[in-house]
Nucleic acid binder design. Sequence first.
DNA 1: GGCATATTCAACCATGTGGTTGATGATAGA
DNA 2: TCTATCATCAACCACATGGTTGAATATGCC
Lengths: 124, 124
Amino acid sequence: MSDPLSTVFAALADPTRRAILAMLLEDDMAVTDVAEPFEMSLAAISKHLAVLAEAGLISREKRGRVIWCRLEPDALKQASVWMQGFGQFEPVDLDAFERFLEDELRSADAGDSPPGLCPGPRDI
Amino acid sequence: MSDPLSTVFAALADPTRRAILAMLLEDDMAVTDVAEPFEMSLAAISKHLAVLAEAGLISREKRGRVIWCRLEPDALKQASVWMQGFGQFEPVDLDAFERFLEDELRSADAGDSPPGLCPGPRDI
DNA sequence: GGCATATTCAACCATGTGGTTGATGATAGA
DNA sequence: TCTATCATCAACCACATGGTTGAATATGCC
């Protein structure tokens, strides 16, 4: 890619990566744990994490043999400012985000997963 | 692609398409006029416009032999809510967006374009 | 040391993306 | 009607992306 804004938007354009970010919203995670709920290889998840790190959306720190992934929300700021400029939406509404995530998870639950488990790789 | 959010982010992940959206922010434009400042073929711009329309970010209306493109900012709303949830940024700051655009244009001007002309296909 | 675990690397494959050129279909205007 | 203009379509190309598998590299633990 090239410019930071393009890199960030491209990183966000994949549901697996967005789901990873949503997982990291709760807490830092090791790569293996990030990969666990997804039905793809660890190598694939590792690539996704590399894309997210390249975009600055996460950082990775090696402690022992485990690599911990941490959300870096600042990387979203420039992109968010860009979008806000177009939308002229009402003031920030974090509740709207939580409702959005809940709706997404609920509709995904109807499909392919036993209830009551942790979120998993849904279309977030 | 697949889900709307992915489609929107993918559409935004290209600087040409973001520049087009910035142009449409000022006024509706015909396809030929959209293409004019870019150094690529009309067909390429037509494809970009198709991507933007697919994402719902613009609409196209044919009047006579001219197709008018209009910005559809509502398509950004869902994506914006998503991002806000991660960023927990300070309240919406439209001034920040304008400064951002200005900075982008200024830094681009240093590069490849005679001064004083209309914005053109910069890295917006 | 030796083995198991954590993560990435490398090679490969199918598909998507961004661009080109040339042909094609509408429509406006002389 | 003839011609020029507006826009897309179709075929093609180079390259990026998202996935796989198998090997390689580190590190922790017995």
